[in-house]
Simulated scan of single mutants.
Amino acid sequence: MSLIVFGPTQQALEWLKNTALAEFTKQTGYEIEVRPSNWGSGFQKLLTAVASGTLADVTMLGQVMTPALMSRGAFLPIDDRLAKWDDTKKFYPAMLKDGTYDGKSYALPIYADVRTSVYRSDILQKAGVGPDALPKNWDDFKAVARKLSTKNGGPLETPFFSNQDNSVGLMQTFSMMLYQAGGSYFDESGKAQLSNDAGVRALDYLVSFYKEGLANPNVVYQGTGPRPLVLGTSAMTYNSVTVQQNAVEYKPDVEKYILAGPPLAADPGGKPSTIAWINKFAISARTKDPDGAWALLSYLTSRDISGKFAEIWGGLPARTDLSGAAYLKKVSPGFVEATQYAGALPTSPNLLQIQQQVNIAMQSATRQSGPSKQILQELDKKIDQINGK
Protein backbone atom coordinates (compact mmCIF):
# COMPACT_ATOMS: atom_id res chain seq x y z
CA MET A 1 0.00 0.00 0.00
CA SER A 2 1.00 3.62 -0.42
CA LEU A 3 0.87 6.67 1.83
CA ILE A 4 1.27 10.38 0.99
CA VAL A 5 2.51 12.73 3.73
CA PHE A 6 3.17 16.46 3.49
CA GLY A 7 5.83 18.59 5.10
CA PRO A 8 7.96 15.94 6.81
CA THR A 9 11.42 16.77 8.05
CA GLN A 10 14.12 14.14 7.73
CA GLN A 11 13.58 13.29 11.37
CA ALA A 12 9.85 12.87 10.76
CA LEU A 13 10.40 10.60 7.77
CA GLU A 14 12.84 8.41 9.68
CA TRP A 15 10.39 8.02 12.57
CA LEU A 16 7.49 7.33 10.22
CA LYS A 17 9.31 4.70 8.16
CA ASN A 18 11.57 3.08 10.73
CA THR A 19 9.35 3.16 13.79
CA ALA A 20 5.66 3.78 13.13
CA LEU A 21 5.25 1.96 9.82
CA ALA A 22 7.76 -0.73 10.68
CA GLU A 23 5.53 -1.65 13.62
CA PHE A 24 2.43 -1.53 11.40
CA THR A 25 4.11 -3.95 8.97
CA LYS A 26 5.02 -6.22 11.85
CA GLN A 27 1.41 -6.24 13.07
CA THR A 28 -0.37 -6.58 9.72
CA GLY A 29 2.12 -7.78 7.11
CA TYR A 30 1.47 -4.73 4.90
CA GLU A 31 4.51 -3.02 3.37
CA ILE A 32 3.94 0.73 3.00
CA GLU A 33 5.41 2.90 0.25
CA VAL A 34 5.79 6.43 1.64
CA ARG A 35 5.45 9.33 -0.80
CA PRO A 36 6.63 12.52 0.89
CA SER A 37 5.85 15.95 -0.55
CA ASN A 38 5.98 19.60 0.43
CA TRP A 39 2.87 21.61 1.24
CA GLY A 40 3.48 24.22 -1.46
CA SER A 41 2.97 21.87 -4.39
CA GLY A 42 0.85 19.35 -2.54
CA PHE A 43 -2.61 20.43 -3.65
CA GLN A 44 -1.71 20.37 -7.33
CA LYS A 45 -0.05 16.97 -6.94
CA LEU A 46 -3.20 15.56 -5.37
CA LEU A 47 -5.43 17.04 -8.08
CA THR A 48 -3.21 15.43 -10.71
CA ALA A 49 -3.20 12.09 -8.89
CA VAL A 50 -6.99 12.11 -8.55
CA ALA A 51 -7.41 12.88 -12.27
CA SER A 52 -4.94 10.16 -13.30
CA GLY A 53 -6.14 7.56 -10.83
CA THR A 54 -2.77 7.35 -9.07
CA LEU A 55 -3.76 8.67 -5.65
CA ALA A 56 -2.09 6.82 -2.77
CA ASP A 57 -4.19 4.38 -0.75
CA VAL A 58 -4.05 6.76 2.22
CA THR A 59 -3.45 10.46 1.76
CA MET A 60 -2.61 13.31 4.11
CA LEU A 61 -4.75 16.42 3.60
CA GLY A 62 -4.53 20.06 4.57
CA GLN A 63 -7.47 22.31 5.38
CA VAL A 64 -7.98 23.76 1.89
CA MET A 65 -7.37 20.47 0.09
CA THR A 66 -10.03 18.51 1.93
CA PRO A 67 -13.39 19.80 0.58
CA ALA A 68 -12.00 20.42 -2.90
CA LEU A 69 -10.98 16.78 -3.25
CA MET A 70 -14.01 15.38 -1.42
CA SER A 71 -16.27 17.15 -3.90
CA ARG A 72 -14.44 15.32 -6.72
CA GLY A 73 -15.21 11.90 -5.24
CA ALA A 74 -11.55 11.29 -4.44
CA PHE A 75 -12.08 9.50 -1.13
CA LEU A 76 -13.88 6.53 0.34
CA PRO A 77 -16.70 7.25 2.82
CA ILE A 78 -15.85 5.82 6.23
CA ASP A 79 -19.11 6.34 8.18
CA ASP A 80 -19.77 2.61 8.61
CA ARG A 81 -16.27 2.04 9.93
CA LEU A 82 -16.43 5.03 12.28
CA ALA A 83 -19.69 3.74 13.73
CA LYS A 84 -17.97 0.50 14.78
CA TRP A 85 -14.67 2.04 15.95
CA ASP A 86 -14.28 2.68 19.68
CA ASP A 87 -11.85 5.56 19.09
CA THR A 88 -14.31 7.66 17.09
CA LYS A 89 -15.58 9.43 20.22
CA LYS A 90 -12.03 10.32 21.29
CA PHE A 91 -11.57 13.06 18.67
CA TYR A 92 -12.56 16.66 19.21
CA PRO A 93 -16.03 16.84 17.57
CA ALA A 94 -15.25 19.95 15.50
CA MET A 95 -12.12 18.31 14.12
CA LEU A 96 -13.97 15.12 13.28
CA LYS A 97 -16.68 17.18 11.57
CA ASP A 98 -14.03 18.84 9.40
CA GLY A 99 -13.53 15.50 7.66
CA THR A 100 -17.12 15.45 6.41
CA TYR A 101 -18.62 16.64 3.15
CA ASP A 102 -22.24 16.61 2.00
CA GLY A 103 -23.29 14.61 5.04
CA LYS A 104 -20.65 11.88 4.78
CA SER A 105 -17.37 11.30 6.63
CA TYR A 106 -14.24 10.89 4.54
CA ALA A 107 -11.23 11.77 6.72
CA LEU A 108 -9.84 11.54 10.24
CA PRO A 109 -7.89 14.39 11.88
CA ILE A 110 -4.26 13.80 12.81
CA TYR A 111 -3.22 17.17 14.28
CA ALA A 112 -4.27 20.81 14.28
CA ASP A 113 -2.93 24.35 14.26
CA VAL A 114 -5.23 25.88 16.89
CA ARG A 115 -5.48 29.67 17.09
CA THR A 116 -6.01 31.81 20.17
CA SER A 117 -4.89 35.12 21.65
CA VAL A 118 -1.10 35.20 22.12
CA TYR A 119 0.95 37.69 24.15
CA ARG A 120 4.45 38.71 25.15
CA SER A 121 4.16 38.39 28.90
CA ASP A 122 7.22 40.54 29.62
CA ILE A 123 5.80 43.46 27.64
CA LEU A 124 2.34 43.05 29.20
CA GLN A 125 3.96 43.31 32.63
CA LYS A 126 5.17 46.80 31.71
CA ALA A 127 1.53 47.82 31.36
CA GLY A 128 0.57 46.14 34.63
CA VAL A 129 -1.13 43.13 33.04
CA GLY A 130 -0.16 39.84 34.65
CA PRO A 131 -0.71 36.29 33.37
CA ASP A 132 -3.71 35.87 35.65
CA ALA A 133 -5.49 38.90 34.19
CA LEU A 134 -5.48 38.12 30.48
CA PRO A 135 -8.42 39.40 28.42
CA LYS A 136 -11.45 37.19 27.88
CA ASN A 137 -13.53 39.46 25.66
CA TRP A 138 -13.10 42.11 22.97
CA ASP A 139 -13.39 45.13 25.24
CA ASP A 140 -10.73 43.84 27.61
CA PHE A 141 -8.43 42.91 24.71
CA LYS A 142 -8.73 46.41 23.26
CA ALA A 143 -8.15 47.93 26.71
CA VAL A 144 -4.84 46.09 27.03
CA ALA A 145 -3.79 47.26 23.56
CA ARG A 146 -4.52 50.84 24.58
CA LYS A 147 -2.46 50.48 27.75
CA LEU A 148 0.48 49.23 25.70
CA SER A 149 0.30 52.09 23.20
CA THR A 150 2.84 54.90 23.35
CA LYS A 151 -0.12 57.25 22.96
CA ASN A 152 -1.07 56.33 26.50
CA GLY A 153 2.42 56.05 27.95
CA GLY A 154 2.93 52.42 26.99
CA PRO A 155 6.01 50.82 25.41
CA LEU A 156 4.79 50.10 21.84
CA GLU A 157 3.68 52.19 18.88
CA THR A 158 1.42 49.44 17.51
CA PRO A 159 0.76 46.77 20.16
CA PHE A 160 -1.52 44.53 18.08
CA PHE A 161 -0.40 42.50 15.06
CA SER A 162 -3.29 41.03 13.07
CA ASN A 163 -1.15 38.70 10.96
CA GLN A 164 -0.68 40.63 7.74
CA ASP A 165 1.52 38.41 5.59
CA ASN A 166 1.96 37.25 2.02
CA SER A 167 -0.59 34.48 2.49
CA VAL A 168 -4.00 34.62 4.20
CA GLY A 169 -3.12 35.76 7.71
CA LEU A 170 -5.66 38.59 7.81
CA MET A 171 -8.38 36.21 6.65
CA GLN A 172 -7.54 33.93 9.55
CA THR A 173 -7.75 36.75 12.08
CA PHE A 174 -11.04 38.01 10.66
CA SER A 175 -12.44 34.45 10.71
CA MET A 176 -11.68 34.14 14.41
CA MET A 177 -13.43 37.44 15.10
CA LEU A 178 -16.35 36.39 12.89
CA TYR A 179 -16.86 33.21 14.91
CA GLN A 180 -16.49 35.12 18.16
CA ALA A 181 -19.26 37.47 17.01
CA GLY A 182 -21.50 34.47 16.39
CA GLY A 183 -21.19 34.66 12.60
CA SER A 184 -20.48 32.17 9.86
CA TYR A 185 -19.50 32.27 6.21
CA PHE A 186 -22.68 30.84 4.68
CA ASP A 187 -26.40 30.67 5.35
CA GLU A 188 -28.41 27.45 5.12
CA SER A 189 -28.77 27.80 1.37
CA GLY A 190 -25.00 28.13 0.92
CA LYS A 191 -25.00 31.84 0.11
CA ALA A 192 -22.29 34.03 1.62
CA GLN A 193 -23.49 36.07 4.60
CA LEU A 194 -20.42 37.94 5.78
CA SER A 195 -22.25 41.26 5.43
CA ASN A 196 -24.80 40.39 8.10
CA ASP A 197 -24.68 41.98 11.56
CA ALA A 198 -22.13 39.51 12.97
CA GLY A 199 -19.78 39.94 10.03
CA VAL A 200 -19.97 43.72 10.11
CA ARG A 201 -19.38 43.72 13.85
CA ALA A 202 -16.31 41.50 13.45
CA LEU A 203 -14.82 43.66 10.71
CA ASP A 204 -15.59 46.88 12.58
CA TYR A 205 -13.70 45.47 15.56
CA LEU A 206 -10.70 44.47 13.45
CA VAL A 207 -10.57 47.84 11.70
CA SER A 208 -10.90 49.73 15.00
CA PHE A 209 -7.33 48.75 15.92
CA TYR A 210 -6.09 50.50 12.79
CA LYS A 211 -8.33 53.53 13.28
CA GLU A 212 -6.96 53.98 16.79
CA GLY A 213 -3.36 53.49 15.71
CA LEU A 214 -3.03 50.25 17.68
CA ALA A 215 -2.07 48.27 14.56
CA ASN A 216 -0.19 49.20 11.42
CA PRO A 217 -1.29 47.98 7.96
CA ASN A 218 2.26 48.44 6.67
CA VAL A 219 3.73 45.84 9.02
CA VAL A 220 3.76 42.64 6.97
CA TYR A 221 5.39 39.38 8.02
CA GLN A 222 7.36 38.06 5.04
CA GLY A 223 7.30 34.41 6.07
CA THR A 224 10.86 34.11 7.36
CA GLY A 225 12.66 35.50 10.38
CA PRO A 226 11.18 36.41 13.75
CA ARG A 227 7.52 37.39 13.84
CA PRO A 228 6.55 40.81 15.26
CA LEU A 229 5.56 39.28 18.61
CA VAL A 230 8.93 37.55 18.84
CA LEU A 231 10.74 40.74 17.83
CA GLY A 232 8.87 42.67 20.49
CA THR A 233 7.42 45.21 18.07
CA SER A 234 3.97 43.94 19.04
CA ALA A 235 2.76 42.30 22.23
CA MET A 236 -0.62 40.90 21.18
CA THR A 237 -1.81 38.79 18.28
CA TYR A 238 -4.19 36.02 17.24
CA ASN A 239 -2.07 33.01 16.34
CA SER A 240 -0.95 29.52 17.30
CA VAL A 241 1.91 27.48 18.71
CA THR A 242 3.83 28.44 15.56
CA VAL A 243 4.69 31.72 17.33
CA GLN A 244 6.38 29.79 20.12
CA GLN A 245 8.19 27.66 17.54
CA ASN A 246 9.26 30.85 15.76
CA ALA A 247 10.78 32.12 19.00
CA VAL A 248 12.67 28.85 19.50
CA GLU A 249 14.12 29.14 16.01
CA TYR A 250 15.03 32.84 15.93
CA LYS A 251 15.11 34.21 19.48
CA PRO A 252 15.29 31.37 22.01
CA ASP A 253 15.60 33.77 24.92
CA VAL A 254 12.10 35.06 24.12
CA GLU A 255 10.33 31.69 24.16
CA LYS A 256 9.63 31.87 27.89
CA TYR A 257 7.66 35.08 27.32
CA ILE A 258 5.30 33.66 24.66
CA LEU A 259 2.01 33.30 26.49
CA ALA A 260 -1.16 31.78 25.03
CA GLY A 261 -4.32 33.29 26.45
CA PRO A 262 -7.91 32.13 26.28
CA PRO A 263 -9.89 32.46 23.05
CA LEU A 264 -11.93 35.63 23.23
CA ALA A 265 -15.67 36.14 23.38
CA ALA A 266 -17.15 39.20 21.72
CA ASP A 267 -18.99 40.20 24.90
CA PRO A 268 -18.38 39.84 28.65
CA GLY A 269 -19.69 36.46 29.72
CA GLY A 270 -20.09 35.39 26.10
CA LYS A 271 -19.01 32.15 24.48
CA PRO A 272 -15.32 32.05 23.53
CA SER A 273 -14.54 30.84 20.04
CA THR A 274 -11.61 30.29 17.74
CA ILE A 275 -10.55 28.37 14.63
CA ALA A 276 -8.17 25.54 13.88
CA TRP A 277 -6.41 24.48 10.70
CA ILE A 278 -6.87 20.72 10.75
CA ASN A 279 -4.74 18.19 8.89
CA LYS A 280 -6.21 14.79 8.18
CA PHE A 281 -5.85 11.40 6.52
CA ALA A 282 -8.29 9.88 4.04
CA ILE A 283 -8.61 6.68 1.98
CA SER A 284 -8.55 6.82 -1.81
CA ALA A 285 -11.85 5.89 -3.45
CA ARG A 286 -9.80 3.77 -5.89
CA THR A 287 -7.86 1.75 -3.33
CA LYS A 288 -7.79 -1.94 -4.18
CA ASP A 289 -7.73 -2.86 -0.50
CA PRO A 290 -10.26 -0.81 1.52
CA ASP A 291 -9.81 -2.97 4.61
CA GLY A 292 -6.04 -2.64 4.53
CA ALA A 293 -6.30 1.11 3.93
CA TRP A 294 -8.65 1.45 6.90
CA ALA A 295 -6.22 -0.54 9.02
CA LEU A 296 -3.49 1.97 8.09
CA LEU A 297 -5.74 5.00 8.62
CA SER A 298 -6.95 3.85 12.01
CA TYR A 299 -3.38 2.97 13.01
CA LEU A 300 -2.03 6.41 12.07
CA THR A 301 -4.81 8.12 14.03
CA SER A 302 -4.57 5.83 17.06
CA ARG A 303 -3.63 7.45 20.35
CA ASP A 304 0.08 6.68 20.50
CA ILE A 305 0.89 7.14 16.83
CA SER A 306 -1.16 10.29 16.29
CA GLY A 307 0.32 11.81 19.44
CA LYS A 308 3.86 11.29 18.18
CA PHE A 309 2.83 12.45 14.71
CA ALA A 310 1.44 15.70 16.14
CA GLU A 311 4.60 16.24 18.17
CA ILE A 312 6.99 15.71 15.27
CA TRP A 313 4.90 17.69 12.76
CA GLY A 314 4.59 20.56 15.25
CA GLY A 315 0.85 20.64 15.89
CA LEU A 316 -1.64 19.98 18.65
CA PRO A 317 -3.40 16.62 19.05
CA ALA A 318 -6.79 16.04 17.43
CA ARG A 319 -7.76 13.57 20.16
CA THR A 320 -9.16 14.53 23.54
CA ASP A 321 -7.24 11.70 25.25
CA LEU A 322 -3.96 13.35 24.26
CA SER A 323 -4.55 16.67 26.01
CA GLY A 324 -2.03 15.56 28.64
CA ALA A 325 0.61 14.29 26.20
CA ALA A 326 4.14 14.65 27.55
CA TYR A 327 5.39 16.88 24.72
CA LEU A 328 2.69 19.45 25.48
CA LYS A 329 4.48 20.33 28.72
CA LYS A 330 6.81 22.43 26.54
CA VAL A 331 3.85 24.29 25.01
CA SER A 332 2.18 27.32 26.58
CA PRO A 333 -0.91 25.71 28.21
CA GLY A 334 -3.34 28.18 26.66
CA PHE A 335 -2.80 26.66 23.21
CA VAL A 336 -3.96 23.26 24.43
CA GLU A 337 -6.87 24.70 26.42
CA ALA A 338 -8.06 26.61 23.35
CA THR A 339 -8.57 23.37 21.43
CA GLN A 340 -11.95 22.72 23.03
CA TYR A 341 -13.28 25.99 21.60
CA ALA A 342 -11.90 25.55 18.08
CA GLY A 343 -14.08 25.26 15.01
CA ALA A 344 -13.02 24.74 11.42
CA LEU A 345 -13.37 26.91 8.36
CA PRO A 346 -16.31 26.00 6.11
CA THR A 347 -15.94 22.82 4.07
CA SER A 348 -16.37 24.55 0.73
CA PRO A 349 -14.74 22.97 -2.33
CA ASN A 350 -13.76 26.50 -3.37
CA LEU A 351 -12.13 27.43 -0.07
CA LEU A 352 -8.77 28.19 -1.68
CA GLN A 353 -10.25 30.93 -3.88
CA ILE A 354 -12.58 32.16 -1.16
CA GLN A 355 -9.91 32.67 1.47
CA GLN A 356 -7.81 34.63 -1.02
CA GLN A 357 -10.73 36.97 -1.75
CA VAL A 358 -11.42 37.40 1.97
CA ASN A 359 -7.79 38.29 2.60
CA ILE A 360 -7.82 40.89 -0.19
CA ALA A 361 -10.97 42.44 1.30
CA MET A 362 -9.39 42.52 4.76
CA GLN A 363 -6.30 44.25 3.40
CA SER A 364 -8.56 46.90 1.90
CA ALA A 365 -10.57 47.26 5.10
CA THR A 366 -7.54 47.71 7.35
CA ARG A 367 -6.51 50.61 5.14
CA GLN A 368 -9.95 52.07 5.84
CA SER A 369 -10.99 52.11 2.21
CA GLY A 370 -14.71 52.13 2.98
CA PRO A 371 -17.47 51.11 5.41
CA SER A 372 -17.35 47.53 6.66
CA LYS A 373 -20.86 46.83 5.40
CA GLN A 374 -19.99 47.87 1.86
CA ILE A 375 -16.72 45.92 1.81
CA LEU A 376 -18.46 42.77 3.04
CA GLN A 377 -21.39 43.12 0.64
CA GLU A 378 -18.95 43.24 -2.26
CA LEU A 379 -17.10 40.28 -0.79
CA ASP A 380 -20.31 38.26 -0.48
CA LYS A 381 -20.99 38.83 -4.18
CA LYS A 382 -17.52 37.60 -5.12
CA ILE A 383 -17.84 34.50 -2.94
CA ASP A 384 -21.27 33.68 -4.40
CA GLN A 385 -19.83 34.05 -7.89
CA ILE A 386 -17.03 31.63 -6.99
CA ASN A 387 -19.61 29.16 -5.66
CA GLY A 388 -22.01 29.67 -8.57
CA LYS A 389 -24.77 31.03 -6.37
Rank of each mutant, 00 (worst) to 15 (best):
A342R: 00
Q356G: 15
Q356P: 00
N359W: 03
L352P: 01
L345S: 06
A344L: 07
Q353R: 11
G343Y: 08
Q363I: 07
N359V: 02
N350A: 10
I360M: 10
Q355H: 08
S364G: 09
Q368K: 10
G370R: 07
A342W: 03
N350H: 13
P346T: 05
P349M: 05
L352C: 06
I360S: 08
A361S: 13
A365N: 06
L351P: 00
N359I: 04
A342E: 03
L352R: 15
N359K: 04
A361Y: 02
Q357M: 10
P349A: 04
M362G: 02
Q353F: 09
Y341T: 02
M362T: 04
T366S: 10
V358F: 05
N359M: 04
G343H: 11
T366I: 15
I354W: 03
L351H: 01
Q357T: 13
A365T: 06
L351N: 03
L345F: 12
T366P: 01
Q357K: 14
Q353G: 09
P349N: 04
N359L: 02
Q355S: 09
T347D: 13
S364Q: 14
L345T: 01
L352F: 15
S348N: 08
N350G: 03
V358H: 05
M362D: 04
T347N: 15
P346E: 07
L345D: 04
L351M: 13
T347W: 08
Q363S: 13
A342D: 02
A344H: 13
Q357E: 15
L345C: 00
L345Y: 11
L352I: 11
I360R: 12
T366E: 12
P349Q: 05
Q355E: 14
S364C: 04
Q356W: 09
V358Q: 09
T347P: 11
N359C: 06
Q363K: 14
L352N: 15
A361E: 06
P349H: 06
Q368L: 15
R367I: 02
L351A: 10
S369R: 12
R367F: 00
S364H: 08
R367D: 06
P346I: 05
A344N: 14
Q357A: 15
S364I: 08
L352W: 14
R367C: 03
G370K: 09
A344R: 10
A342M: 02
Q357P: 00
P346Q: 05
G343K: 12
R367E: 11
Y341E: 01
P346L: 05
T347R: 15
N350V: 07
N350S: 10
N359R: 03
M362E: 06
T366K: 08
Q353S: 12
G370W: 06
S369P: 01
P349D: 05
P349C: 03
N350L: 08
S348E: 07
L351V: 07
A361H: 03
P346Y: 04
A365W: 07
Q355I: 13
M362I: 14
S348T: 13
N350Q: 11
G370L: 06
R367P: 01
L351K: 04
Y341G: 01
Y341L: 01
M362L: 12
Q356H: 11
M362A: 09
G370F: 06
Q357F: 08
A361F: 03
L352Q: 14
Q355M: 12
L345I: 06
Y341F: 13
S369G: 13
G343R: 12
T366Q: 12
V358T: 10
